[in-house]
């Protein structure tokens, strides 16, 4: 082992300790700053009850609204979510967001055309949520839905 001068030794120890101080302060700082980023979107609640399955007419998407309480930081807010529920056979249901995937306007089901229409930039979606025409980059967001006791519940978001 090469003999180290006192000066070099002290310099290295000092530099190491400065690094230690930096780490002791820095790591918690980063953890502290990124902490809220860990909370992913999601529903914020376990299940959103929508009502009886019998209310959804076969073959026609029906709008359901539900209010959920979402806690962000120390503030709790009430948010209203809306879903188009659609069933072909009265047994299997799909739930779609009514938010246009283009710029977030609310889409509307137009009975006669059998299509969803977005008033902002004339986007049109098919009955199953896929893009028929217009600027949207992808189909309407889908939610997981479950039927219990003839009641509909939104239980999560379907990841694309």
């Amino acid at each position: 082992m090469a003999k180290m001068s006192r000066r070099t030794f002290l310099s290295r120890v000092t530099t190491t300790m400065v690094g230690g101080i930096g780490a002791l302060m820095g790591i918690p700082t980063v953890a502290y700053l990124v902490s809220p980023a860990k909370a992913r979107g999601g529903l914020g609640v376990d299940a959103i009850p929508l009502g009886p399955a019998a209310k959804v007419p076969v073959g026609e998407p029906t709008l359901f609204k539900a209010a959920i309480e979402r806690k962000t930081g120390w503030v709790t807010q009430t948010e209203e979510l809306a879903f188009y529920i659609f069933t072909e056979d009265g047994r299997n249901f799909t739930a779609m967001s009514n938010v246009c995937t283009h710029l977030g306007c609310r889409v509307r089901w137009v009975d006669g055309d059998e299509q969803f229409f977005c008033p902002c930039h004339a986007a049109v979606f098919n009955k199953n949520g896929t893009v028929a025409s217009g600027p949207p980059p992808r189909a309407l967001d889908q939610y997981e839905i479950s039927v219990e006791d003839e009641q509909l519940f939104i239980v999560g978001k379907v990841e694309a």
């Binding site: 000066r7 002290l10 310099s11 000092t14 300790m17 230690g20 101080i21 002791l24």
Partner: peptide, 23 residues
């Protein structure tokens, strides 16, 4: 003595200990 590293070494060592105590 030279300020760096002799005095700085002492300062940083004490500072490090203070920080550990604080944590």
């Amino acid at each position: 003595i030279p300020f760096f590293p002799d005095a700085v070494f002492k300062d940083v060592l004490v500072g490090f200990l203070v920080l550990v105590v604080l944590i």
